[in-house]
Simulated assay, not measured.
Amino acid sequence: MRRTGPAMAWNFFRFCTALRVLGSVMIVLVLAIAAVTYYAVVIANYGPALLAAGASLRALSPIAVLLPFHFFLVMLLWCYFSVVLTDPGGVPPNWRPHIDEERGETDPLTTSDFNGTNLSLQQAASLASAGHPGIRFCRKCNQLKPPRCHHCSVCGRCVLKMDHHCVWVVNCVGALNYKFFLLFLFYTLLETALVTLSLLSQFIAFFGDGEIPGTPGTLATTFLTFVLNLAFALSVLGFLIMHASLVAANTTTIEAYEKKTTPKWRYDLGRRKNFEQVFGTNKKYWFIPAYSDEDLRRMPALQGLEYPSKPDFDAQDF
Protein backbone atom coordinates (compact mmCIF):
# COMPACT_ATOMS: atom_id res chain seq x y z
CA MET A 1 0.00 0.00 0.00
CA ARG A 2 1.25 3.46 -0.84
CA ARG A 3 2.10 5.52 2.24
CA THR A 4 0.50 8.93 2.64
CA GLY A 5 0.23 11.64 5.25
CA PRO A 6 2.89 13.29 7.42
CA ALA A 7 5.20 10.29 7.23
CA MET A 8 5.82 11.11 3.58
CA ALA A 9 6.68 14.76 4.27
CA TRP A 10 9.72 15.96 2.39
CA ASN A 11 12.78 16.24 4.63
CA PHE A 12 15.13 18.93 3.42
CA PHE A 13 17.97 17.83 5.70
CA ARG A 14 18.35 14.54 3.84
CA PHE A 15 20.43 16.62 1.47
CA CYS A 16 22.85 17.95 4.11
CA THR A 17 25.69 15.87 2.66
CA ALA A 18 24.99 17.34 -0.76
CA LEU A 19 25.12 20.82 0.76
CA ARG A 20 28.58 20.12 2.17
CA VAL A 21 29.79 18.97 -1.25
CA LEU A 22 28.22 22.04 -2.84
CA GLY A 23 30.09 24.21 -0.35
CA SER A 24 33.43 22.87 -1.60
CA VAL A 25 32.40 23.82 -5.11
CA MET A 26 31.48 27.30 -3.88
CA ILE A 27 35.02 27.90 -2.61
CA VAL A 28 36.32 27.18 -6.10
CA LEU A 29 33.64 29.49 -7.50
CA VAL A 30 34.70 32.33 -5.20
CA LEU A 31 38.33 31.94 -6.27
CA ALA A 32 37.27 31.77 -9.94
CA ILE A 33 35.29 35.02 -9.65
CA ALA A 34 38.28 36.65 -7.95
CA ALA A 35 40.56 35.44 -10.75
CA VAL A 36 38.25 36.70 -13.50
CA THR A 37 37.92 40.05 -11.74
CA TYR A 38 41.69 40.33 -11.37
CA TYR A 39 42.17 39.60 -15.07
CA ALA A 40 39.58 42.17 -16.16
CA VAL A 41 40.78 44.97 -13.88
CA VAL A 42 44.56 44.48 -13.73
CA ILE A 43 45.62 42.56 -16.82
CA ALA A 44 43.05 43.71 -19.38
CA ASN A 45 42.46 47.33 -18.39
CA TYR A 46 44.33 49.24 -15.70
CA GLY A 47 47.62 47.36 -15.89
CA PRO A 48 48.17 48.23 -19.56
CA ALA A 49 46.94 51.79 -18.85
CA LEU A 50 49.57 52.17 -16.12
CA LEU A 51 52.33 50.86 -18.38
CA ALA A 52 51.27 53.15 -21.21
CA ALA A 53 51.24 56.19 -18.92
CA GLY A 54 54.75 55.59 -17.67
CA ALA A 55 55.93 58.34 -15.33
CA SER A 56 53.39 60.91 -16.49
CA LEU A 57 50.47 62.29 -14.52
CA ARG A 58 48.19 59.96 -16.44
CA ALA A 59 49.51 57.16 -14.23
CA LEU A 60 47.64 58.58 -11.23
CA SER A 61 44.29 57.31 -12.49
CA PRO A 62 45.25 53.62 -12.81
CA ILE A 63 47.26 53.79 -9.57
CA ALA A 64 44.19 55.17 -7.76
CA VAL A 65 42.34 52.01 -8.85
CA LEU A 66 45.05 49.37 -8.59
CA LEU A 67 46.28 50.17 -5.07
CA PRO A 68 42.93 49.92 -3.25
CA PHE A 69 41.93 47.04 -5.53
CA HIS A 70 44.85 44.90 -4.37
CA PHE A 71 44.41 45.93 -0.73
CA PHE A 72 40.70 45.07 -0.69
CA LEU A 73 41.35 41.80 -2.52
CA VAL A 74 43.99 40.70 0.01
CA MET A 75 41.73 41.59 2.95
CA LEU A 76 38.73 39.91 1.30
CA LEU A 77 40.60 36.63 0.81
CA TRP A 78 42.17 36.80 4.27
CA CYS A 79 38.77 37.23 5.91
CA TYR A 80 37.15 34.65 3.64
CA PHE A 81 39.59 31.87 4.49
CA SER A 82 39.48 32.88 8.15
CA VAL A 83 35.75 32.09 8.08
CA VAL A 84 36.32 28.86 6.15
CA LEU A 85 39.11 27.55 8.38
CA THR A 86 37.97 28.80 11.80
CA ASP A 87 35.80 26.50 13.88
CA PRO A 88 32.67 28.53 14.77
CA GLY A 89 32.66 26.96 18.22
CA GLY A 90 31.44 23.63 19.56
CA VAL A 91 30.16 22.60 22.98
CA PRO A 92 33.07 21.40 25.16
CA PRO A 93 32.79 17.76 26.31
CA ASN A 94 30.79 17.35 29.52
CA TRP A 95 29.95 21.07 29.55
CA ARG A 96 27.87 22.21 32.52
CA PRO A 97 26.48 25.69 33.21
CA HIS A 98 28.37 28.06 35.46
CA ILE A 99 27.00 28.57 38.97
CA ASP A 100 26.81 32.11 40.33
CA GLU A 101 27.97 31.63 43.92
CA GLU A 102 26.63 35.01 45.13
CA ARG A 103 23.20 34.89 43.52
CA GLY A 104 22.81 31.13 43.76
CA GLU A 105 21.81 30.94 40.12
CA THR A 106 22.98 29.22 36.99
CA ASP A 107 22.49 29.99 33.34
CA PRO A 108 20.56 28.39 31.73
CA LEU A 109 19.67 26.08 34.67
CA THR A 110 18.55 26.98 38.16
CA THR A 111 20.10 25.43 41.26
CA SER A 112 16.88 23.63 42.08
CA ASP A 113 17.28 21.66 38.84
CA PHE A 114 21.05 21.44 38.68
CA ASN A 115 23.48 20.63 41.43
CA GLY A 116 27.07 20.37 40.22
CA THR A 117 27.23 17.46 37.80
CA ASN A 118 24.47 15.41 39.44
CA LEU A 119 21.97 16.19 36.72
CA SER A 120 22.09 13.31 34.25
CA LEU A 121 21.48 13.72 30.55
CA GLN A 122 18.27 11.71 30.93
CA GLN A 123 17.05 14.13 33.60
CA ALA A 124 17.98 17.09 31.43
CA ALA A 125 16.07 15.62 28.50
CA SER A 126 13.05 15.04 30.71
CA LEU A 127 13.10 18.62 31.98
CA ALA A 128 13.41 19.91 28.42
CA SER A 129 10.45 17.78 27.32
CA ALA A 130 8.44 19.16 30.23
CA GLY A 131 9.02 22.65 28.87
CA HIS A 132 11.36 23.83 31.62
CA PRO A 133 12.14 27.50 30.81
CA GLY A 134 15.70 27.41 32.08
CA ILE A 135 17.16 24.31 30.45
CA ARG A 136 18.38 23.73 26.92
CA PHE A 137 19.11 20.20 25.75
CA CYS A 138 19.96 18.89 22.27
CA ARG A 139 18.44 15.49 21.58
CA LYS A 140 20.48 15.03 18.41
CA CYS A 141 23.80 15.59 20.15
CA ASN A 142 22.50 14.19 23.47
CA GLN A 143 24.06 17.02 25.46
CA LEU A 144 23.25 20.22 27.31
CA LYS A 145 23.37 23.38 25.23
CA PRO A 146 25.01 26.61 26.43
CA PRO A 147 23.10 29.87 26.06
CA ARG A 148 22.57 31.01 22.43
CA CYS A 149 23.75 27.64 21.09
CA HIS A 150 21.84 25.90 18.29
CA HIS A 151 22.13 22.61 16.43
CA CYS A 152 23.24 22.72 12.78
CA SER A 153 21.80 19.86 10.75
CA VAL A 154 24.37 20.40 7.98
CA CYS A 155 27.41 20.25 10.29
CA GLY A 156 25.71 17.64 12.48
CA ARG A 157 26.55 19.31 15.79
CA CYS A 158 25.65 22.16 18.12
CA VAL A 159 27.32 25.48 17.30
CA LEU A 160 27.97 28.25 19.82
CA LYS A 161 25.95 31.41 19.09
CA MET A 162 25.05 30.01 15.70
CA ASP A 163 23.94 32.60 13.15
CA HIS A 164 23.48 30.41 10.07
CA HIS A 165 25.18 27.76 7.97
CA CYS A 166 26.80 29.41 4.97
CA VAL A 167 27.27 27.28 1.86
CA TRP A 168 29.70 29.84 0.43
CA VAL A 169 32.22 29.19 3.21
CA VAL A 170 31.48 25.48 3.80
CA ASN A 171 31.07 26.27 7.46
CA CYS A 172 28.72 27.52 10.09
CA VAL A 173 28.90 31.15 11.10
CA GLY A 174 29.03 31.20 14.87
CA ALA A 175 30.64 32.74 17.94
CA LEU A 176 34.28 32.27 16.93
CA ASN A 177 34.09 33.35 13.27
CA TYR A 178 31.15 35.76 13.10
CA LYS A 179 33.45 38.80 13.13
CA PHE A 180 35.47 37.29 10.27
CA PHE A 181 32.28 36.74 8.29
CA LEU A 182 31.19 40.35 8.75
CA LEU A 183 34.61 41.60 7.67
CA PHE A 184 34.41 39.35 4.62
CA LEU A 185 31.11 41.01 3.70
CA PHE A 186 32.59 44.47 4.36
CA TYR A 187 35.65 44.02 2.16
CA THR A 188 33.60 42.25 -0.51
CA LEU A 189 31.34 45.30 -0.68
CA LEU A 190 34.30 47.66 -0.98
CA GLU A 191 35.98 45.50 -3.62
CA THR A 192 32.90 44.94 -5.77
CA ALA A 193 31.89 48.62 -5.55
CA LEU A 194 35.38 49.69 -6.63
CA VAL A 195 35.40 47.25 -9.55
CA THR A 196 31.92 48.32 -10.64
CA LEU A 197 32.87 52.01 -10.66
CA SER A 198 36.23 51.42 -12.33
CA LEU A 199 34.69 49.40 -15.18
CA LEU A 200 31.61 51.57 -15.60
CA SER A 201 33.13 53.59 -18.44
CA GLN A 202 34.06 50.42 -20.35
CA PHE A 203 30.57 49.04 -19.76
CA ILE A 204 28.97 52.20 -21.16
CA ALA A 205 31.35 52.22 -24.11
CA PHE A 206 30.50 48.57 -24.77
CA PHE A 207 27.01 49.66 -25.83
CA GLY A 208 28.17 52.87 -27.51
CA ASP A 209 29.13 53.54 -31.09
CA GLY A 210 32.81 54.14 -30.37
CA GLU A 211 35.46 51.47 -30.79
CA ILE A 212 36.89 49.85 -27.69
CA PRO A 213 40.48 48.59 -27.69
CA GLY A 214 40.99 44.95 -26.87
CA THR A 215 40.17 41.49 -28.15
CA PRO A 216 36.61 40.10 -28.12
CA GLY A 217 37.61 37.82 -25.25
CA THR A 218 38.91 40.76 -23.22
CA LEU A 219 35.76 42.77 -23.86
CA ALA A 220 33.54 39.84 -22.89
CA THR A 221 35.50 39.30 -19.67
CA THR A 222 35.25 42.97 -18.79
CA PHE A 223 31.50 42.96 -19.44
CA LEU A 224 31.00 39.80 -17.34
CA THR A 225 33.12 41.18 -14.51
CA PHE A 226 31.13 44.40 -14.38
CA VAL A 227 27.78 42.57 -14.24
CA LEU A 228 28.96 40.08 -11.60
CA ASN A 229 30.49 42.72 -9.34
CA LEU A 230 27.46 44.99 -9.63
CA ALA A 231 25.17 42.11 -8.65
CA PHE A 232 27.40 41.13 -5.70
CA ALA A 233 27.75 44.73 -4.54
CA LEU A 234 23.99 45.20 -4.35
CA SER A 235 23.28 41.85 -2.69
CA VAL A 236 26.14 42.14 -0.18
CA LEU A 237 25.06 45.68 0.71
CA GLY A 238 21.62 44.44 1.74
CA PHE A 239 23.11 41.49 3.62
CA LEU A 240 25.60 43.72 5.43
CA ILE A 241 22.88 46.18 6.47
CA MET A 242 20.86 43.29 7.90
CA HIS A 243 23.79 41.98 9.93
CA ALA A 244 24.69 45.47 11.14
CA SER A 245 21.22 45.71 12.65
CA LEU A 246 21.67 42.28 14.26
CA VAL A 247 25.00 43.29 15.80
CA ALA A 248 23.48 46.55 17.08
CA ALA A 249 20.78 44.54 18.91
CA ASN A 250 23.21 41.77 20.00
CA THR A 251 21.26 39.04 18.29
CA THR A 252 21.74 36.51 15.51
CA THR A 253 19.71 35.55 12.46
CA ILE A 254 18.20 32.62 14.37
CA GLU A 255 17.55 34.66 17.51
CA ALA A 256 15.90 37.42 15.49
CA TYR A 257 13.03 34.99 14.81
CA GLU A 258 12.94 33.84 18.42
CA LYS A 259 12.67 37.44 19.66
CA LYS A 260 9.35 37.85 17.89
CA THR A 261 7.74 35.95 20.77
CA THR A 262 10.05 37.29 23.49
CA PRO A 263 8.94 40.47 25.29
CA LYS A 264 12.48 41.31 26.41
CA TRP A 265 15.93 40.49 25.04
CA ARG A 266 18.36 39.84 27.85
CA TYR A 267 21.57 40.27 25.84
CA ASP A 268 20.95 43.76 24.43
CA LEU A 269 23.43 45.88 26.44
CA GLY A 270 23.50 48.91 24.17
CA ARG A 271 25.04 49.36 20.74
CA ARG A 272 28.60 49.96 21.88
CA LYS A 273 28.82 46.94 24.19
CA ASN A 274 26.95 44.83 21.66
CA PHE A 275 29.51 45.80 19.01
CA GLU A 276 32.40 44.98 21.33
CA GLN A 277 31.02 41.48 21.96
CA VAL A 278 31.64 40.75 18.27
CA PHE A 279 34.64 42.93 17.36
CA GLY A 280 36.39 43.34 20.72
CA THR A 281 37.46 46.57 22.41
CA ASN A 282 40.86 47.02 20.75
CA LYS A 283 40.32 49.33 17.76
CA LYS A 284 43.54 48.13 16.10
CA TYR A 285 41.90 44.72 15.56
CA TRP A 286 38.48 45.88 14.40
CA PHE A 287 39.26 45.62 10.69
CA ILE A 288 41.31 42.43 10.65
CA PRO A 289 40.15 38.82 11.29
CA ALA A 290 41.84 38.49 14.68
CA TYR A 291 41.47 39.47 18.33
CA SER A 292 43.92 40.90 20.81
CA ASP A 293 45.09 38.58 23.59
CA GLU A 294 43.68 41.00 26.17
CA ASP A 295 40.19 40.89 24.64
CA LEU A 296 40.24 37.11 24.47
CA ARG A 297 41.29 36.93 28.11
CA ARG A 298 38.79 39.37 29.63
CA MET A 299 35.74 38.99 27.36
CA PRO A 300 34.08 35.57 27.82
CA ALA A 301 31.54 36.41 25.10
CA LEU A 302 34.30 36.07 22.48
CA GLN A 303 34.67 32.42 23.53
CA GLY A 304 30.98 31.76 22.92
CA LEU A 305 30.03 30.25 26.29
CA GLU A 306 29.16 33.14 28.62
CA TYR A 307 27.19 36.28 27.80
CA PRO A 308 26.43 39.15 30.17
CA SER A 309 22.76 40.07 30.58
CA LYS A 310 20.92 43.23 31.48
CA PRO A 311 21.32 43.97 35.20
CA ASP A 312 17.58 44.42 35.68
CA PHE A 313 16.62 41.40 33.61
CA ASP A 314 14.04 39.02 35.07
CA ALA A 315 14.75 35.43 34.01
CA GLN A 316 11.03 34.69 34.00
CA ASP A 317 10.58 37.09 31.08
CA PHE A 318 13.00 35.14 28.89
Rank of each mutant, 00 (worst) to 15 (best):
R139F: 15
T215D: 00
C158L: 13
P213D: 08
L200H: 14
C141L: 04
K145R: 15
C172Y: 11
Y178A: 01
L197H: 03
P213K: 03
G208Q: 00
L194Q: 07
I204Y: 03
C172N: 12
T196P: 00
L199Y: 09
P147N: 10
L176A: 06
N142H: 14
C158A: 12
F206K: 00
G217S: 06
K161R: 15
L197F: 04
L224W: 07
K145E: 08
V170Q: 06
P133F: 03
L219T: 06
P147G: 07
K145I: 06
R136H: 14
F207L: 01
Y178S: 01
L183T: 01
E211K: 03
P146L: 07
W168H: 01
D163C: 12
Y187C: 06
T196L: 01
Y187G: 05
Q143P: 14
L160V: 11
A205I: 06
M162Q: 03
C158D: 14
E211L: 09
H150C: 13
T192E: 03
A193G: 14
F184R: 05
Y187E: 05
V170R: 02
Q202P: 06
P216H: 05
C152N: 15
C166H: 13
T215L: 00
W168N: 05
P213I: 02
F223I: 00
A130G: 14
L200P: 12
G217L: 02
G131K: 10
W168A: 10
L194K: 05
L160Q: 06
V173G: 07
F184Q: 08
L182P: 08
K179F: 10
V227Q: 11
F181Y: 15
F181Q: 01
T196Q: 04
P147W: 01
G208P: 02
T221I: 03
C172K: 04
Q202H: 05
L183P: 02
L144N: 05
Y178F: 13
S198L: 09
K140H: 09
A205N: 08
P133T: 09
L190D: 03
I135P: 07
D209P: 01
D163Y: 12
Q202A: 06
L144V: 03
K179E: 09
T215G: 00
P133L: 11
R136N: 07
Y178P: 00
P146Q: 08
Y187D: 03
L190C: 12
F137Y: 15
